[in-house]
């Protein structure tokens, strides 16, 4: 389909979003990612039944942790899409990139620079 999506999005493959752990998301933020999102299957369409629902809860947990330390919870997000929706995938990549650009660089990196 040769669809374009922003080159700043780095994809990490997992067999199912149910494999994504709270710690994976936090480590990405800790290491300086400006934003992290989980792209799961549509709700109700999980091959393993509830993997994407578990991922959603974990994303919400991380949002709370970020809020607790005074960081924008919008830097982590859960999206759902079908594997057949290439256009939708590219659209979300653009949408999330724009959101992060509006939020600006992660304070984890700017804080480190300030020190």
């Amino acid at each position: 389909m040769r669809l374009n999506y922003p080159s700043n999005v780095k994809i990490i493959n997992v067999p199912c979003t149910g494999r994504v752990d709270i710690l994976h998301l936090l480590k990405a933020v800790e290491d300086g990612a400006d934003g992290v999102y989980v792209a799961g299957c549509l709700e109700g369409d999980c091959h393993y039944l509830t993997g994407n629902l578990k991922a959603k809860k974990r994303v919400n947990y991380v949002k709370k942790v970020l809020e607790g330390i005074g960081m924008e919870p919008e830097r982590v997000e859960m999206y759902n899409m079908s594997a057949a929706e290439g256009a939708r995938f590219a659209e979300i990549a653009r949408e999330f990139t724009q959101r992060i650009q509006e939020l600006g660089p992660s304070p984890v990196r700017s804080g480190a620079k300030a020190a």
């Binding site: 936090l26 933020v29 970020l66 330390i69 005074g70 960081m71 984890v108 804080g111 300030a114």
Partner: peptide, 12 residues
């Protein structure tokens, strides 16, 4: 991890 993120954010 959460504590480290918080402190990196503060630059210490």
């Amino acid at each position: 991890s959460a504590l480290k993120i918080a402190r990196k954010k503060e630059g210490r």
